[in-house]
Design a protein around this nucleic acid. Structure first.
Lengths: 214, 214
DNA sequence: CCACAACCTGACCAACCGGTCAAGAAAATT
DNA sequence: AATTTTCTTGACCGGTTGGTCAGGTTGTGG
């Protein structure tokens, strides 16, 4: 009389298969681009027949859109560290750390995002014009208060953000180039720490970040 | 008796058509990616029938390879400013200026390069392992002499180079995102100058570049 | 003016792609 | 146990793609 029979699958089938497909899709879209990716290859990576993909996601575009949206939300979440900070050393430092961690643990997502932007954002242009724009202006305002409070030099906040995005995402998007220049070896823990520290150090020094008004 | 009849085409036909095709290909590959680009579209942009493309370039891969190689060489040339400089302020400053100019005037090339790297460099991996590696180690050595001569703080030269590449190329590769955040407007002259100055200022300050040993 | 080489191109083809569908298997509900 | 819903899948289809090719045109050298 097992009250809960060990049936592995219940109503979670949909949830599990969608996750399986989305993970495979992210990998394939990152490696081949939208145009180069095929539903057949995504199906093979997911270990499912192709027709099954179309049962869960009506079109290739719909699947791609969901992948990009998922990345976008992960990416926005990394800003939590930004807001509660007392100044640029804590705030920017933690934000850079968080973005470097994403580049390390989630490089495929970063590549899909980069690819989408490079192709003029055919799928998520509306997000750029609403969510991303609002998000950016909020953080620009935070940086401006740091400047006004004398906690950093008066640097254009937009370009500062672009530099943080560019530098941190570079370790994901151009990971293959970096790996090649690292004798074909991926970074080990020490090298990732060194990368993080160097990036933080140059940027924080570069804006003359300080704990108290001088 | 016009000594030089105005024949537009002589033996230069090949040269001109190849240039026409390569320029169209760079644009299309940048906008659609390798997989998304079609020979038909490249032909339309070049204003030539598709079969004519295959007369000059045997396959899509061959055409793509030539585009990428051309970009790679332009890109390496920008380093001339690096070598004859007295220190990081001149050398890095001029290099950043040059790379920012390329991002502004040649964004399509930068995107094709980024795409190739993101897809694990299926076409130019050999260049990465030879030319790029040698080039990089040479510049790392130059930066190291600056450090040894007390002209900048002891910063890991590799990560410094990555930051310069990332930041400058970001303005090309993510130009659409930046444009969207700039109220849908491309940068004007003043904004490009501001971008350049900000990038140079943060990086040079960030490594504590100076003209004389202190 | 001739012969040869370089260039041009419409028509065509096999391969592949995204997407459909019908028929059934498995789960959930009653 | 019966019924309904959800899930699975091989086979198939129209459209597109990279690439070919034969026949023609244009330019060049003698």
């Amino acid at each position: 009389m097992p009250a809960v029979p060990r049936t592995i699958s219940k109503k979670i089938i949909r949830q599990e298969n969608e996750k399986l497909i989305l993970e495979a899709a992210e990998k394939v879209f990152a490696e081949a681009g939208f145009g180069g990716a095929t539903m057949q290859l995504i199906a093979d990576v997911a270990g499912l027949p192709k027709a099954n993909l179309h049962y869960y996601f009506p079109t290739k575009e719909a699947l791609y859109r969901q992948v990009v949206e998922s990345i976008f939300h992960d990416w926005l979440d990394a800003a939590a560290y930004f807001d509660d900070a007392e100044g640029p050393i804590d705030g920017l430092g933690a934000y850079i750390d968080a973005k470097m961690e994403i580049s390390r643990s989630h490089p495929a997502g970063s590549k899909v995002w980069a690819s989408e932007i490079m192709h003029r954002a055919p799928v998520i242009q509306d997000y750029l014009e609403t969510t991303l724009r609002d998000w950016t202006e909020d953080r620009v305002a935070v940086i401006q208060t740091w400047i006004d409070r004398g906690l950093m030099d008066p640097v254009d906040p937009h370009h500062l953000l672009y530099m943080v995005w560019a530098t941190t995402q570079h370790y994901a998007d151009f990971g293959h180039q970096i790996e090649t220049l690292n004798n074909g070896q991926p970074f080990d823990d020490d090298q990732w720490k060194r990368a993080k520290d160097t990036v933080k150090s140059i940027i924080l020094r570069g804006i003359n970040a300080r704990a108290r008004r001088v």
